[in-house]
Design a binder for these strands. Structure first.
Length: 266
DNA sequence: ATGGTAGCGGAGCTA
């Protein structure tokens, strides 16, 4: 069972790259963020052509948007919260029915980026980000503990020192500030383990995002690990491997994020 | 301290 998460930064603009992704990783379940397409304009024929017979999507005009493309049947959990009551299309919860009759619970998140100034008293976007993570943490605590559950997405926070290219230089930069990191850790500790760091020691650099604003992303390599895969603790023994598809950052017309894959033996 | 690029939608917001 291979689960992939990717902030595609416009589904319609990068439909062609999905073929590259399927060729490279052959996901069973593909979770997308920043689809930037309202449901009425979703390219309905595309997933089937790539072998994904089951689709869940939640999109809006212009911004945000999440989708799940799956080779196995999906049931969307419509009762999951609308975080902040904003109708923001930042979360899809679904159950995946596996061939053996087992069910996997899936959460696909796009956490607010939080703007530029890491001060909630002057930057409402930063306040929104912190509140979003607090609300999610409280909900997962209140409704847990979970089994056979996977949470993925662009969480827009790089928690560890080596999840950014320079811990010192990014301590005051939104995505790596202490209040964000504390909250992300509390959210994870509400009932998950970090599936990628399960395989990679904390003293090794790991990035999933490189800004468009660098002349040469590879040469400067100023990346951050913003995209995550978490699993409930019962699945830890089932973790089979991971892959961060760095090469995707060099695809023609790339997203600024690259796909992250985790294999779970089920 | 600043500016650098990208997507949506058709100016300015968001990232």
């Amino acid at each position: 069972m291979r689960i992939v998460t990717w902030n595609i930064n416009s589904l319609r603009l990068r439909l062609g790259l999905l073929r590259h992704l399927v060729d490279a990783l052959a996901p069973d379940v593909l979770c997308l963020q920043e689809t930037k397409v309202p449901d009425a304009l979703f390219p309905d024929a595309a997933p089937g052509a790539l072998g994904f017979g089951h689709v869940a999507r939640r999109g809006m005009k212009g911004y945000n948007g999440v989708a799940v493309l799956s080779r196995h049947p999906l049931v969307v959990d419509e009762a999951a919260p609308d975080w902040g009551g904003r109708g923001d299309c930042r979360h899809l919860a679904a159950s995946v029915s596996l061939p053996g009759g087992e069910v996997l619970d899936l959460h696909n998140f796009y956490v607010p980026a939080g703007g530029d100034v890491p001060d909630r008293t002057v930057n409402p976007k930063f306040a929104h980000k912190l509140d979003f993570v607090d609300e999610a943490t409280a909900w997962f605590r209140a409704t847990g503990p979970r089994r056979r559950c996977v949470l993925v997405g662009d969480l827009n926070i790089a928690p560890l020192e080596h999840d950014v290219w320079s811990h010192k230089q990014l301590l005051g930069v939104v995505s790596h500030t202490p209040p964000e990191v504390e909250r992300l850790n509390a959210w994870r500790d509400s009932g998950f383990v970090d599936a990628v760091r399960h395989f990679v020691p904390e003293d090794q650099k790991l990035y999933t995002w490189w800004s468009y604003r660098n002349r040469d992303w590879k040469a400067s390599d100023r990346g951050r690990r913003l995209d995550h895969v978490w699993v409930s603790p019962d699945l830890r023994p089932n973790l089979g491997g991971y892959r961060i598809l760095r090469e995707a950052r060099d695809w023609d017309g790339p997203s600024d994020h690259v796909p992250v894959a985790v294999d779970i033996d089920l």
